[in-house]
């Protein structure tokens, strides 16, 4: 085959492909651009100009006001997300380890029922969860919200780790048992160090789910313990005074930024982890 045949040609088909791709890019990026532009404009500028014009006078006043409004709730979210993500990931790893390496009578059924949890809509568990939290004395507390997120997330994290560990040869565990390692030593010294890709998947998945959660936040937290998503909603929906779109946009960006950062930092592990085990090697 000649080299020329490998060179991409600018044919009509290729132009159509690029046009489609550019269009798709625009569809996804324009809202972000509008948000960014608007957040740096003054309220007057917003009223007079159109959505896509550059700010007449560049100002960060929107961001400053937004941060002042959601600051406390942002840290609430951090206080909810960090323990909830870590605990659900660790427990999921432990569950996956048991369900793949230490099968017991009925473990397949147990796993099947647990999978069911992945298909449960948020709304279904609202009443039972709030009942339980009330009984535990955890209603309207950060701890309570963490607990709900951990329980709801367990189905997913267990699924991730179980499917990852199923592809790990059982001989490893057998070898470690003969070497004298116990249940937790095998888990901590041998399996966990191998699990970096799937841990990353779990962290990203759980972080995104819990950070972006609105429903649990609005139902199980109130006042000062609310997460940033609920605070953003409250801010945007206030009916008093003129609409400060620049503040709304900046606050929305602040609320969305952490998940973006997590994707950028750990994104390459995400794909690697999701496809691990798909191809042997």
């Amino acid at each position: 085959m000649s080299n020329a045949a490998l060179q991409p040609r600018l044919s009509a088909g290729r132009i159509a492909i690029y046009a489609t791709l550019l269009l798709a890019c625009a569809v996804y990026l324009i809202p972000l651009i509008v948000m960014l532009l608007t957040s740096f404009k003054t309220p007057d500028d917003i009223r007079t100009g159109n959505l896509l014009t550059l700010p007449e006078s560049f100002t960060v006043i929107g961001w400053v006001k937004a941060w002042a409004a959601v600051n406390g709730y942002f840290w609430n979210s951090v206080k909810i997300v960090v323990p909830a993500v870590l605990i659900s990931t660790l427990l999921g790893a432990l569950n996956g380890y048991v369900l793949s390496m230490w099968r017991f009578r009925g473990s397949q059924l147990f796993f099947g029922l647990l999978l069911f949890g992945c298909f449960l809509p948020f709304q279904v568990i609202l009443l039972p969860a709030s009942f339980t939290l009330g009984k535990l004395g955890l209603a309207n507390t950060t701890t309570g919200l963490v607990l709900v997120h951990v329980v709801y997330g367990l189905a997913f994290t267990t699924l991730f780790f179980r499917n990852f560990y199923v592809s790990v040869p059982e001989a490893l565990v057998r070898a470690a048992r003969l070497d004298g390692a116990g249940f937790f030593t095998i888990f901590g010294r041998i399996l966990l160090p191998m699990s970096v890709p799937i841990i990353m998947v779990c962290l990203i998945w759980q972080f995104t789910q819990i950070w972006n959660d609105f429903l649990f936040g609005v139902v199980f937290a109130s006042g000062d313990t609310q997460p940033v998503t609920v605070a953003l909603n409250n801010l945007v929906n206030t009916s008093t005074g003129a609409k400060q779109y620049n503040v709304d946009m900046a606050a929305a960006m602040i609320a969305g930024l952490p998940t973006l950062v997590v994707y950028v930092l750990a994104g390459k592990y995400f794909l690697r982890g999701l496809t691990s085990g798909a191809v042997k090697g």
């Binding site: 040869p169 001989a171 490893l172 057998r174 070898a175 003969l178 010294r189 160090p193």
Partner: peptide
């Protein structure tokens, strides 16, 4: 008792 496995089962990390 020590065992040598068919897949070697070396700890990969």
């Amino acid at each position: 008792i020590a065992m040598v496995f068919q897949s070697y089962a070396l700890y990969p990390t």
